[in-house]
């Protein structure tokens, strides 16, 4: 199991479209993933869960991944957040 944190850098925050990109990514992997923010803990493969987080620009999300492909998933998630989901930063 690995744990790490990422920040939301795109201006518009984690709205529907980025949330969808994230879930599309996590769903490709076999590992389980949970995301925590402000005491909320949600399933990272559920768009409904991710959208509940209401993560605005500047906020930090804690990831917890557990499974055989956890390292690959970590690399991709970090890259996705770093790029701001391809949106204006």
């Amino acid at each position: 199991m690995i744990e790490f944190e990422v920040s939301v850098v795109n201006r518009a925050g984690l709205h529907t479209r980025p949330a969808a990109s994230l879930v599309k990514l996590t769903s490709k992997y076999k590992s389980n993933v949970f995301i925590e923010k402000d005491g909320m803990r949600i399933n990272g493969k559920s768009i409904i869960g991710v959208m509940t987080l209401a993560a605005e620009v500047g906020s930090t999300l804690s990831f917890e991944i557990d499974g055989i492909d956890e390292n690959e998933m970590e690399t991709e998630i970090k890259e996705l957040f770093r790029s701001g989901f391809g949106e204006p930063i």
Binding site: T16, A20, V23, N43, S46, I47, I48
Partner: peptide
């Protein structure tokens, strides 16, 4: 791309186990 991704998010929503 933009249109495609927003509609994909709708599909994900409908397929979501939480829903």
């Amino acid at each position: 791309e933009k249109i495609k991704s927003i509609i994909e998010s709708e599909i994900m929503f409908l397929q979501d186990v939480e829903l």
